[in-house]
Structures are given as C-alpha cells and as structure tokens.
Amino acid sequence: MAFAVTARRRPARTAETARRGVLTAVGAAAAVLFLLPLWWMTASALRPQEETFGTLSPVSVWTVLPRHLTAENFGRLGEAGFTLAMANSVLVAAVTVVVGLAICSMAAFALAVLDFPGRTAVFAVMVVSFLIPFDAIAIPLSSVFRDVGLQNTYAGLILPGIGNGLAVFLLRSFFLGIPQELAEAGRVDGLSWWGVFWRVHLPLSQPALIGAGLILFVFQWQSYMWPLLIAPDPAKKVAPVAIAQFAGEHGVDFGGIFAGAVVTTAAPLLVLLFFQRYFTQSLSASGLKG
C-alpha cells in the first residue's frame, strides 16, 4: 500500500517539478527579453557612440558590454541644460501627483459615495474623457491655454495632468468597495462628508491612491507633445524634450540620448520598484467588490 502511494505520487511530483522548471525558464527568458533593451541602453550610455554601432554586427559579447567605459555622454547632458530640464520634469510631475490626487480622490468620493442628480452622467463624461487620446485635443487645448496666458508657465504644463479620468475611475471603483455602512456609521457619529472622506475612505485606500498617483506621474513624466506646444521657452523645457534635442538635422548624438534615457528611466523605475506592491494590489483590489 505504502509503495503504491509513493509510486503514484512520484510521477506527479516529477511532473510538477518539470512544469515549474519550464515556467521558470519561460519567466526568466521573458525577464531577459524585457531587461535587454534597458541593459543595452545603459551599456550604450557608458561607452563612446562609435562603439555602440561598431559592435552591432556581428553580435558578440561587446554588443551588450561596454569595452571602453566613459562618463562623457553624461557630461554632455549637463552642457545641454539637461539638469534644468530634469528639475522641471520632477517639479511638474510632483505637483501633478499631489494636486491631482487631491482633486481626483475628491471627485471619486463624490461619484462613489454621495448621491446627487446627474451622478451617472458626470461619471460617464469622465470615463469618455480618458478614452479620448490626449494628443487629439492637445492642439486646440494649447490655443485655449495660450489665450488665457498660460504659455511658458508651470501651471500650463501641470494643469492638463491633474484631472485624470482614469485616476478618478480607479479611485471610484475602490471607494465603491468600501462598505457603505462605514460611511453611514461615521455620519451617525457626527462626521461631516468631508470627515468621512478624510477619516474613513482615504486611510483605507492607500493602494488605490498609490496606483492613481503612478498614473498621474507617468502621464506627466512621459509627456512630450504638450510641453513642446505650450512651453517652448528653454527655461521651462522638460526632460523628454531635452532628450529629443540630441537629434539634429545632420546627425544624432546617440550617446547623449542614451545617457538622458538612463537618467529619465531611473526616476520612475525607482518609484515603481518602491510602490509596485501597492500598484498591483490597487489594480486587483479596485476591480473587486469589497
């Protein structure tokens, strides 16, 4: 009997081990495929431009490893005013996240908890707003912004990023998962709606807030066309625009582009690494009913 059980279990365990092995191999291969462009970008930022293209064909170990390490490419970033552009990007993204989260969470709370006429219609408009690509409205919007004197201002860069339909959607879904009874109990105990929002919903929604914050952050961090339209002043230049300027008419400074890309990737990478647990949690939690 004991023999029979072991005999039955062993193949099952072997199959399980094999399955796990294959999955691990596939997972590792996928990870390498995702990592490779980032690795190549970093390696290319650390070597002279000629080496980057000289080692492309035939493919060898030197295609992905820098043979002559140099920090020159990063030095050129400084000369091209990249530091200011990076500071602008950080400022714009940070203000967008703080102000945007405040506005989006309040809107989401109103749409999820407060009952008022036209609530569904308002929500529908917000859903539609994030389905329209921003690029499609950027040009007419920029002329409105210019008319009200927002050209070449930080406000002009920040404003389109703070009211994000997707962030409202995400937060509203999360708030809907919080039992209505909690809000009612709070009201019975004398809390105002503001108190319910501040003391009940916000503390319970940390993962969703981080998820929404990341959406707001990424929107601003990668925005290129809008800053180009509304803030062409060199003093208000943001990092993606500064990187694009390494591509001139008669040649492209790929070393500078790679170095700029490394610096601009590092910031969101750190933010994501730090918050990724909450981010995935927020995506799964906000899709489920509490």
Partner: peptide, 29 residues
C-alpha cells in the same frame, strides 16, 4: 501621454452607466 495601456477595470459600482451617457457624450463632443 497615452494612457491607453492601462486597461479600464470593470467598475464595482452599484449604478453602472446605462443608456444616459449617450446624451453626455453628445454634450462632451
């Protein structure tokens, strides 16, 4: 600036948007 990568989640809402958004859409357009 494209946020289309992030897939919208199914709302857990009690009142899912029904036919009324059509009017809202027209207003928005």
């Amino acid at each position: 600036m494209d946020t289309s990568d992030a897939r919208p989640l199914r709302p857990a809402g009690r009142r899912t948007p029904g036919r009324r958004p059509a009017r809202a859409l027209t207003v928005l357009a």
